[in-house]
Protein backbone atom coordinates (compact mmCIF):
# COMPACT_ATOMS: atom_id res chain seq x y z
CA UNK A 1 0.00 0.00 0.00
CA UNK A 2 2.78 2.40 0.97
CA UNK A 3 6.42 1.86 0.15
CA UNK A 4 9.66 3.77 0.38
CA UNK A 5 12.33 3.01 -2.20
CA UNK A 6 15.91 3.90 -1.42
CA UNK A 7 14.86 7.11 0.35
CA UNK A 8 17.50 9.70 1.25
CA UNK A 9 16.77 12.78 3.35
CA UNK A 10 19.13 15.55 4.39
CA UNK A 11 18.67 18.19 7.06
CA UNK A 12 21.00 20.87 5.76
CA UNK A 13 24.35 19.10 5.70
CA UNK A 14 23.20 16.24 7.91
CA UNK A 15 22.51 13.01 6.08
CA UNK A 16 19.54 11.94 8.20
CA UNK A 17 18.19 9.04 6.13
CA UNK A 18 20.75 7.15 4.09
CA UNK A 19 18.77 5.24 1.54
CA UNK A 20 16.12 3.09 3.19
CA UNK A 21 13.44 0.89 1.65
CA UNK A 22 10.31 -0.02 3.58
CA UNK A 23 7.06 -1.70 2.62
CA UNK A 24 3.82 -1.20 4.52
CA UNK A 25 1.22 -3.73 3.34
CA UNK A 26 -2.47 -2.87 3.52
CA UNK A 27 -4.17 -3.61 6.82
CA UNK A 28 -0.96 -4.33 8.74
CA UNK A 29 0.81 -2.70 11.65
CA UNK A 30 4.40 -1.90 10.72
CA UNK A 31 6.75 -0.44 13.27
CA UNK A 32 9.98 1.45 12.96
CA UNK A 33 12.10 1.15 16.08
CA UNK A 34 15.46 2.56 16.98
CA UNK A 35 17.29 4.80 19.41
CA UNK A 36 16.88 8.53 19.72
CA UNK A 37 18.30 10.29 16.65
CA UNK A 38 18.17 7.22 14.42
CA UNK A 39 15.98 9.09 11.95
CA UNK A 40 12.60 7.54 12.73
CA UNK A 41 10.70 10.81 12.87
CA UNK A 42 12.42 12.00 9.70
CA UNK A 43 10.98 9.03 7.81
CA UNK A 44 7.46 10.01 8.90
CA UNK A 45 8.11 13.67 8.11
CA UNK A 46 9.27 12.70 4.61
CA UNK A 47 6.17 10.60 3.97
CA UNK A 48 3.80 13.32 5.19
CA UNK A 49 5.58 15.95 3.12
CA UNK A 50 7.12 18.02 5.91
CA UNK A 51 10.65 17.03 4.85
CA UNK A 52 11.73 16.92 1.21
CA UNK A 53 13.68 13.76 0.25
CA UNK A 54 16.93 14.30 -1.66
CA UNK A 55 16.40 11.15 -3.68
CA UNK A 56 14.39 7.94 -3.72
CA UNK A 57 10.66 7.40 -4.11
CA UNK A 58 7.60 7.26 -1.91
CA UNK A 59 4.87 5.22 -3.58
CA UNK A 60 1.31 5.09 -2.28
CA UNK A 61 -1.46 3.09 -3.96
CA UNK A 62 0.68 2.73 -7.10
CA UNK A 63 1.17 6.51 -7.36
CA UNK A 64 4.35 8.38 -6.55
CA UNK A 65 3.83 11.01 -3.85
CA UNK A 66 7.47 11.95 -3.24
CA UNK A 67 7.79 15.62 -2.31
CA UNK A 68 4.06 16.32 -2.23
CA UNK A 69 2.98 19.12 0.12
CA UNK A 70 1.47 17.88 3.42
CA UNK A 71 -2.03 19.18 2.65
CA UNK A 72 -2.17 16.93 -0.44
CA UNK A 73 -0.73 13.90 1.34
CA UNK A 74 -3.37 14.04 4.07
CA UNK A 75 -6.07 14.45 1.42
CA UNK A 76 -4.88 11.18 -0.17
CA UNK A 77 -5.42 9.35 3.10
CA UNK A 78 -2.14 9.39 5.01
CA UNK A 79 -2.39 11.03 8.43
CA UNK A 80 0.32 11.71 10.99
CA UNK A 81 -0.06 12.08 14.73
CA UNK A 82 3.20 13.98 15.14
CA UNK A 83 5.94 13.72 17.70
CA UNK A 84 5.15 15.72 20.82
CA UNK A 85 1.40 15.55 20.02
CA UNK A 86 1.29 19.14 18.76
CA UNK A 87 -2.17 19.82 20.13
CA UNK A 88 -3.26 23.40 19.48
CA UNK A 89 -3.47 24.64 23.06
CA UNK A 90 -5.76 27.62 22.41
CA UNK A 91 -8.37 25.65 20.49
CA UNK A 92 -10.96 23.51 22.22
CA UNK A 93 -10.83 19.73 22.01
CA UNK A 94 -13.76 19.87 19.61
CA UNK A 95 -11.99 22.44 17.42
CA UNK A 96 -8.84 20.33 17.40
CA UNK A 97 -10.91 17.44 16.09
CA UNK A 98 -12.52 19.67 13.45
CA UNK A 99 -9.06 20.78 12.41
CA UNK A 100 -8.15 17.15 11.90
CA UNK A 101 -11.00 16.95 9.40
CA UNK A 102 -9.91 20.11 7.56
CA UNK A 103 -9.07 18.16 4.41
CA UNK A 104 -12.66 16.94 4.16
CA UNK A 105 -15.85 18.74 3.24
CA UNK A 106 -18.48 16.04 3.90
CA UNK A 107 -20.23 17.54 6.92
CA UNK A 108 -22.31 14.47 7.71
CA UNK A 109 -19.27 12.19 7.55
CA UNK A 110 -17.29 14.49 9.83
CA UNK A 111 -20.07 14.53 12.42
CA UNK A 112 -20.19 10.74 12.20
CA UNK A 113 -16.44 10.48 12.75
CA UNK A 114 -16.57 12.84 15.71
CA UNK A 115 -19.06 10.46 17.31
CA UNK A 116 -16.81 7.57 16.40
CA UNK A 117 -13.66 8.99 18.02
CA UNK A 118 -15.72 10.05 21.02
CA UNK A 119 -16.66 6.38 21.30
CA UNK A 120 -13.00 5.38 21.17
CA UNK A 121 -11.95 8.11 23.62
CA UNK A 122 -14.86 8.86 25.98
CA UNK A 123 -12.67 11.25 27.97
CA UNK A 124 -12.37 13.55 24.96
CA UNK A 125 -16.12 13.87 24.77
CA UNK A 126 -16.26 14.97 28.42
CA UNK A 127 -13.66 17.62 27.65
CA UNK A 128 -15.02 18.71 24.24
CA UNK A 129 -15.32 22.40 25.16
CA UNK A 130 -12.10 22.53 27.16
CA UNK A 131 -8.97 24.12 25.66
CA UNK A 132 -6.46 21.62 24.28
CA UNK A 133 -3.73 23.10 26.48
CA UNK A 134 -5.56 22.13 29.67
CA UNK A 135 -5.51 18.40 28.96
CA UNK A 136 -3.14 15.98 30.69
CA UNK A 137 -0.36 14.34 28.69
CA UNK A 138 -2.34 11.15 28.22
CA UNK A 139 -5.44 13.00 27.12
CA UNK A 140 -3.39 15.07 24.69
CA UNK A 141 -1.98 11.88 23.18
CA UNK A 142 -5.48 10.49 22.76
CA UNK A 143 -6.53 13.77 21.16
CA UNK A 144 -3.55 13.62 18.79
CA UNK A 145 -4.56 10.13 17.66
CA UNK A 146 -8.25 11.08 17.44
CA UNK A 147 -7.40 14.20 15.46
CA UNK A 148 -5.36 12.19 12.97
CA UNK A 149 -8.27 9.76 12.60
CA UNK A 150 -10.59 12.66 11.74
CA UNK A 151 -9.11 12.81 8.23
CA UNK A 152 -10.43 9.25 7.76
CA UNK A 153 -6.98 7.95 6.86
CA UNK A 154 -6.13 4.73 5.10
CA UNK A 155 -2.70 4.88 6.65
CA UNK A 156 -2.27 6.22 10.17
CA UNK A 157 1.28 7.19 11.17
CA UNK A 158 2.03 7.57 14.86
CA UNK A 159 5.22 9.16 16.14
CA UNK A 160 6.12 8.00 19.66
CA UNK A 161 2.59 7.72 21.02
CA UNK A 162 3.92 6.28 24.29
CA UNK A 163 6.32 9.13 25.01
CA UNK A 164 5.93 10.51 28.52
CA UNK A 165 2.94 8.37 29.41
CA UNK A 166 2.51 6.23 32.51
CA UNK A 167 2.70 2.46 31.79
CA UNK A 168 -1.03 2.02 32.33
CA UNK A 169 -1.76 4.71 29.74
CA UNK A 170 0.78 3.24 27.32
CA UNK A 171 -1.13 -0.03 27.42
CA UNK A 172 -4.37 1.84 26.84
CA UNK A 173 -2.99 3.75 23.84
CA UNK A 174 -1.64 0.56 22.26
CA UNK A 175 -4.95 -1.17 22.84
CA UNK A 176 -6.60 1.63 20.88
CA UNK A 177 -4.02 1.38 18.07
CA UNK A 178 -4.83 -2.30 17.84
CA UNK A 179 -8.54 -1.52 17.68
CA UNK A 180 -8.03 1.10 14.95
CA UNK A 181 -6.04 -1.43 12.95
CA UNK A 182 -8.74 -4.04 13.46
CA UNK A 183 -11.17 -1.66 11.74
CA UNK A 184 -9.02 -1.82 8.61
CA UNK A 185 -6.67 1.12 9.02
CA UNK A 186 -3.06 0.45 8.11
CA UNK A 187 -0.67 1.65 10.82
CA UNK A 188 2.93 2.84 10.67
CA UNK A 189 4.20 3.15 14.22
CA UNK A 190 7.44 4.80 15.27
CA UNK A 191 8.57 3.92 18.77
CA UNK A 192 11.48 4.02 21.16
CA UNK A 193 9.54 1.68 23.38
CA UNK A 194 10.58 -1.32 21.26
CA UNK A 195 9.12 -4.02 23.50
CA UNK A 196 5.56 -2.70 23.35
CA UNK A 197 5.76 -1.79 19.69
CA UNK A 198 7.06 -5.20 18.58
CA UNK A 199 4.27 -6.96 20.40
CA UNK A 200 1.55 -5.36 18.31
CA UNK A 201 3.49 -5.10 15.04
CA UNK A 202 3.07 -7.49 12.11
CA UNK A 203 6.40 -6.41 10.71
CA UNK A 204 9.23 -4.30 12.07
CA UNK A 205 12.28 -2.40 10.91
CA UNK A 206 15.20 -1.45 13.11
CA UNK A 207 16.74 1.89 12.21
CA UNK A 208 20.24 2.94 13.26
CA UNK A 209 21.68 6.32 12.25
CA UNK A 210 19.67 6.53 9.05
CA UNK A 211 20.04 2.93 7.90
CA UNK A 212 17.89 -0.16 8.31
CA UNK A 213 20.01 -2.68 10.16
CA UNK A 214 17.42 -5.36 10.75
CA UNK A 215 13.92 -6.28 9.73
CA UNK A 216 11.48 -9.08 10.31
CA UNK A 217 8.16 -10.07 11.78
CA UNK A 218 7.37 -8.37 15.07
CA UNK A 219 7.24 -11.59 17.05
CA UNK A 220 10.53 -12.80 15.56
CA UNK A 221 12.39 -9.58 16.39
CA UNK A 222 11.03 -9.69 19.90
CA UNK A 223 13.10 -12.83 20.40
CA UNK A 224 16.06 -11.77 18.28
CA UNK A 225 19.30 -11.67 20.28
CA UNK A 226 20.59 -8.48 18.65
CA UNK A 227 17.34 -6.61 19.28
CA UNK A 228 17.18 -7.86 22.86
CA UNK A 229 20.73 -6.72 23.50
CA UNK A 230 20.32 -3.28 21.94
CA UNK A 231 16.75 -2.25 22.78
CA UNK A 232 15.13 -4.56 25.24
CA UNK A 233 17.78 -4.52 27.93
CA UNK A 234 19.23 -8.01 27.36
Amino acid sequence: MLSLENLQVYYGAIHAIKGISITIPKGKVVTLIGANGAGKSTVLRAISGLAKPRSGRIVYNQAEITGWPPENVVRQGIALAPEGRRILPHLTVFENLQLGAYSRSDKAGIAEDIDKVNGLFPRLQERAQQKGGTLSGGEQQMLAVARALMSRPQVLMLDEPSLGLAPKLVAEVFEIIRAINAQGCTVLLVEQNAFTALRIADYAYVLEVGTIVLEGEGEALLHDERVRAAYLGG
Binding site: S48, G49, L50, P69, P70, E71, V74, R75, A79, L80, P82, R86, L88, P89, H90, L91, E95, Q98, L99, G100, Y102, S103, R104, R147, S151
Partner: peptide
Protein backbone atom coordinates in the same frame (compact mmCIF):
# COMPACT_ATOMS: atom_id res chain seq x y z
CA UNK B 1 -13.70 26.72 8.66
CA UNK B 2 -11.22 29.21 7.15
CA UNK B 3 -11.33 31.01 10.50
CA UNK B 4 -10.37 27.77 12.25
CA UNK B 5 -7.51 27.52 9.77
CA UNK B 6 -6.40 31.06 10.63
CA UNK B 7 -6.41 30.38 14.35
CA UNK B 8 -4.53 27.13 13.85
CA UNK B 9 -1.86 28.69 11.61
CA UNK B 10 -1.39 31.47 14.16
CA UNK B 11 -0.10 28.91 16.67
CA UNK B 12 1.51 26.15 14.61
CA UNK B 13 1.93 26.31 10.85
CA UNK B 14 3.49 22.87 10.49
CA UNK B 15 0.73 21.02 12.34
CA UNK B 16 -1.89 23.00 10.44
CA UNK B 17 -0.38 21.83 7.15
CA UNK B 18 -0.41 18.24 8.43
CA UNK B 19 -4.12 18.59 9.06
CA UNK B 20 -4.65 19.79 5.48
CA UNK B 21 -4.93 23.56 6.01
CA UNK B 22 -3.88 25.32 2.76
CA UNK B 23 -1.60 27.80 4.51
Amino acid sequence: KPGLGMRAIAKDIETSRLMGVPV
